[in-house]
Simulated scan of single mutants.
Amino acid sequence: MNDSLAFEQNVVDERVQELFRVGMHFGYAKTRRHPRMRQYIAGVKSNIEIFNAEKIWECFNVALEFLESVGKEGGMVLWVGTKPASSGVIRLVAEELGHPYVNSRWIGGTLTNYKIIRERINYWQDLIAKKKSGELLKYTKQEQLRINHEIEKLTRDLQGIFPLSSLPKALFVIDAGEEEIAIREAHMKNISVVALLNSDCDPKKVSYPIPGNDNASKSISFVTSKAKEAYLKGKAMHVSN
């Protein structure tokens, strides 16, 4: 083996080991597998399907190249992950980038009825402004309590998508099965979807599937971190141009 081939093999081996370290190669039991995920499965261990690490990297690289292109164009990504294992890292990465996110509950119409959602955001911000200015003090205590409860609910639902001033260029999703409504809305608006999806999901439903463990926090953090790095790499080229 010449030096060039040896170097390439070492790179591949390091990447595979990295996937193993974060547990990204673990799927579900064979009985839960979606038929279209068969191409990504290498085998079964203790009744758990194991993903083919090289195929994971092939898909992952394509997805990262796309996210880099979004950053290069100066586009915005909507980060979506509502499961407990993903909600924290989704919020952290999105806030670091100044991007919108959904980490608790997808509101129907977020993409397909964006005008109404924006009106709700404006209404929520207006209530907050009135509370800060003391304008709510003119209401009875019972009315103030009702308004405060409404502000709390709107904050939970809308604070993540507040930066969404227009439709995003892409969605980044943890668990395509869990976020099916978000993905459906993205398709209706011709928005590309990058998704980490386990063996029970249909890869044909997303533009850039990343087969892998979408339950383990280490796997989710690893994929999300790499996605952020790819976006920032592209954004740096956008800024320099």
Rank of each mutant, 00 (worst) to 15 (best):
V77Q: 06
V77E: 05
V77K: 06
V77M: 08
W79Y: 09
W79H: 12
G81E: 04
G81M: 02
T82D: 01
T82Q: 09
T82P: 04
K83E: 01
S86G: 00
S87G: 00
S87T: 04
S87A: 08
S87L: 05
G88D: 07
I90R: 00
L92F: 13
A94Q: 05
E95G: 01
E95W: 07
E95L: 09
E96H: 12
G98W: 00
P100T: 08
P100V: 03
Y101R: 07
V102I: 13
S104H: 11
S104F: 06
W106N: 01
I107L: 13
I107Y: 07
G108H: 06
G109Y: 04
G109S: 09
L111F: 06
K115V: 14
I116W: 10
I116G: 10
I117E: 05
I117Y: 01
I117V: 14
R118N: 14
R118G: 11
R118L: 12
E119P: 08
R120S: 12
R120A: 11
I121L: 14
I121G: 12
N122E: 15
Y123C: 09
Q125P: 03
Q125K: 15
L127S: 06
I128M: 12
A129Q: 13
A129Y: 05
A129V: 10
K130W: 02
K131E: 11
K132L: 14
S133P: 07
S133Y: 04
G134T: 01
E135S: 14
E135A: 14
L136S: 01
L136W: 04
L137H: 10
L137G: 09
L137Q: 13
K138A: 10
T140L: 02
T140E: 04
Q142E: 14
Q142S: 12
L145K: 15
R146Y: 11
I147G: 00
N148K: 10
E150T: 08
I151W: 00
E152H: 07
K153M: 07
K153S: 07
K153V: 05
R156H: 11
R156Q: 09
D157R: 15
D157I: 10
G160D: 06
G160I: 11
G160T: 11
I161F: 06
F162W: 14
P163N: 09
L164F: 05
S165W: 10
S166W: 12
S166Y: 14
A170D: 00
A170W: 01
L171T: 06
F172I: 13
F172K: 08
V173H: 04
D175V: 07
E179R: 05
I181F: 11
I181Y: 13
A182P: 04
I183G: 06
R184D: 14
A186E: 09
A186S: 11
H187S: 15
K189Y: 05
K189F: 03
N190A: 07
S192R: 14
V194T: 02
A195F: 00
L196D: 03
L196T: 01
L196S: 05
L197M: 08
N198S: 04
N198A: 05
